[in-house]
Design a protein around this nucleic acid. Structure first.
Lengths: 167, 167
DNA sequence: GAAGATTGAACGGTCAATCTTC
DNA sequence: GAAGATTGACCGTTCAATCTTC
C-alpha cells in the first residue's frame, strides 16, 4: 500500500486525507457529478437519449451484426443486468432495438439494433463526440489524457479486485 | 459505430476519437459509473446514507457553527437547489439537520446540523475515508494522484466555462 | 421583477423476488 | 440447481411550476 506524507494513523486507526488527497478527491467527485450531467443534457436535447442509452446503442452499432447478448452488453456498459433489462424495454418500445433468444442457447437473450436505432446513433454521434472533445479530450494535453487514463485504469483495477470478495 | 483509427476530419466535419482518446474516454466513463456506486453501497450499509447525503452532512460539519445557506451547500456539493431541498427534507425528517430562515435576509434558508447529525457523520467518516483510500487514493502513486487532480481541474474549468453561456 | 427555495409529478435505477432455460 | 434475464415495488433526481422575500 502506498503511504502518503502527512496522513498519520490516529488513535482510532483512521488515516484521514491530507490537503492534497482531499483536493484530488473533491475534484474527482465534482467531475463525477458534472460531466455525465452535461453529456446527458446534450444527448437528451439532441436525440431524446440518456447517456447510458446512447452508450448502449453505440456498443450495439459497433458489432458485426449490430447484436449482442444482454449480459455482454451489461458488462460493456458497466451496468447491472436489471438496469439493462429496463433500458432495453424503453428502447424496444421506441423501436430502436428488439430482443430474441439466442438459437444456440435459449438462456441467452440477444439485443439487436433496428435500422431506426442505427439511424439515431448515427444522427446523435457527431454532437455527442463534439461534447466529449470539448469537455474532456480537448481540455487536456495528450500527456494529461494519458495520465488520466492511467489513473483510471488503476482505480478500475481496484474496484474490480473487491467486486467478488468474499465469494 | 465502427470508426477508423486516426482522428481525421470527415466530410461532415466531425473529428472522431482515435484509439487512445476512446480508451481514455471509456475508462473515465467506467470510473464515473462504478466508483460512486461502490461508495454509495458502503455508506448505505454502514450509515443508511447515500454518498450525496454524506457529502452534504460532512460539508455542514466542517463549518464553524455547522450551518450553511442552502444555495451555498448546493454549490459546494455540486447539486441543484431542487435536489438540495429534497435531500434536506429527508435528512430533516430523520433529525439529522433542521432549517431556519437567515435572520439577516429572509430569502436565505440556513441548514443546521443537529447533534445527531454530527454524531452520524463522525461515526460514518472512518469507514468512508477508508473506502476512498482503498479505491482511489492508495490505488495511485502520489504522482498519479497529482496528475489526476490536474486533469480534473482542467475538465472542471471547461465544464464551468460553458455553464452560463449565453447569458 | 428577481433571487432563493420549495413542491409534486414523471422518470430512471436499485434491490429482491421470480421466471426460464440449461 | 445454476446462469441469464425479467419484473415490480421502492427510492432518489430532474424538470417545470410555484411560493416567498427582497
Amino acid at each position: 500500500m502506498v503511504r502518503s506524507k502527512v496522513a498519520e494513523p490516529e488513535p482510532g486507526g483512521t488515516r484521514w486525507l491530507d490537503d492534497e488527497e482531499r483536493a484530488a478527491w473533491l475534484g474527482v467527485m465534482a467531475v463525477i457529478l458534472k460531466l455525465p450531467a452535461a453529456l446527458d443534457s446534450q444527448l437528451t436535447r439532441s436525440a431524446q437519449l440518456t447517456l447510458f442509452e446512447y452508450l448502449l446503442l453505440a456498443r450495439l452499432s459497433e458489432q458485426p451484426e449490430r447484436r449482442l447478448r444482454m449480459s455482454t452488453l451489461a458488462t460493456l456498459t458497466n451496468g447491472s443486468l436489471s438496469r439493462l433489462s429496463h433500458v432495453a424495454d424503453r428502447l424496444e418500445k421506441r423501436g430502436l432495438l428488439y430482443r430474441e433468444r439466442d438459437p444456440e442457447n435459449g438462456r441467452y437473450m440477444m439485443a439487436i439494433l433496428t435500422p431506426a436505432g442505427y439511424e439515431l446513433v448515427v444522427k446523435a454521434a457527431p454532437g455527442h463526440v463534439q461534447k466529449v472533445r470539448e469537455l474532456l479530450i480537448d481540455a487536456l494535453s495528450p500527456d494529461q489524457l494519458r495520465a488520466l487514463q492511467d489513473a483510471g485504469a488503476h482505480v478500475l483495477a481496484q474496484l474490480d479486485s473487491g467486486s467478488n470478495w468474499p465469494p
